[in-house]
Computed example of a mutant assay.
Amino acid sequence: MPVPALPSVADQAEKLIEIGATGPLTPELLRKEAAGLPTRPGLLVVAGLAPSAIAPLMRRAGRPGFVVGDMDDVDAFAPVTDVPDAPVWLLEAPERGDELQNASPAEAEERFAARGRVPMLLTEGVQWVLQVPEVLERNHCFMTTGSRLRKPTGRFDARTPAVWISNGTGRDGTERRDAPKVGWCWWNNRHTWLGFGSGERRST
């Protein structure tokens, strides 16, 4: 199924205001910053929103989103791709990357580079689901390789963040079945049901 289109940037701003996902920006400032973005279609992204704070604002099947229990350091996953030095930006033409299902994150990164696309940040992925919950479908979810955790040694943690749908098994708990979920997969692993989020560019 095609990914649903995003609302207008102005409507996206109102959505974030409605659910309390404006970060340090007042509603008035968010509206002003959003109005100054390019008029091209894309995802309105508010800088500085912690995944741990906005993941519970996701909704699917009447259930709130959550971060898996073994990712209590989720907010330490930082951008490894260029992001604007701005309070908001537009991630143009976001894609879920269904055609990359069963690729490893490393292979997906190569494909992004060849196509000139930018890997999606975890916070961008969560904000996308905030705006269009239908972007998450069974067997069609996505990883966000634009965010990685760097260890004190300088090497990257092998966990790679992703946004998908809970099956309500294990530590998730049956009450979370069908809820949107922030979790992780190993950098070199492949999953037939996970694509890779990306955008055409980030604009301000």
Rank of each mutant, 00 (worst) to 15 (best):
M1E: 14
P2G: 01
V3S: 12
P4V: 12
A5T: 13
A5M: 12
P7M: 13
A10H: 14
A10L: 08
L16W: 04
I17F: 03
I17G: 01
E18R: 09
I19Q: 06
A21V: 03
A21P: 06
G23C: 02
P24N: 02
P24Q: 07
P24V: 13
L25C: 04
E28I: 02
E33Y: 02
A34V: 03
A34G: 08
T39Y: 01
R40A: 15
G42V: 04
V45C: 15
V46E: 00
A50H: 10
I54K: 00
I54R: 00
A55V: 07
P56Y: 09
M58N: 01
R59T: 13
R60D: 03
R60V: 02
R63W: 04
P64H: 12
G69F: 11
D70T: 10
D70M: 07
D70E: 11
D73F: 14
D73V: 10
V74E: 01
A76K: 06
A76S: 11
A76L: 12
F77S: 07
D82M: 15
P84K: 09
D85S: 14
P87R: 05
V88L: 02
V88E: 00
W89Y: 13
L91Y: 08
E92T: 14
G97R: 04
D98L: 08
N102V: 02
A103N: 13
S104L: 01
P105Y: 13
P105Q: 07
A106K: 11
E107S: 08
E109H: 13
E110G: 15
E110Q: 15
F112S: 02
F112M: 11
A114L: 14
A114G: 07
A114N: 07
A114W: 03
Q127G: 01
V132H: 09
V132M: 06
E134A: 15
E137M: 10
R138H: 13
C141M: 10
F142K: 09
F142A: 04
T145K: 03
S147M: 13
S147C: 12
R150P: 05
T153W: 05
G154K: 12
F156P: 04
D157G: 02
D157F: 05
T160V: 14
P161R: 05
P161I: 03
W164H: 14
W164A: 03
N167S: 13
N167T: 10
G168M: 15
T169C: 10
G170S: 13
G170E: 15
D172R: 06
G173Y: 03
R177L: 15
V182L: 09
G183E: 02
C185I: 14
C185R: 15
W186D: 07
W186Y: 07
W187R: 06
N189Q: 14
H191P: 01
T192G: 11
T192C: 07
G195K: 07
S198E: 06
R201I: 08
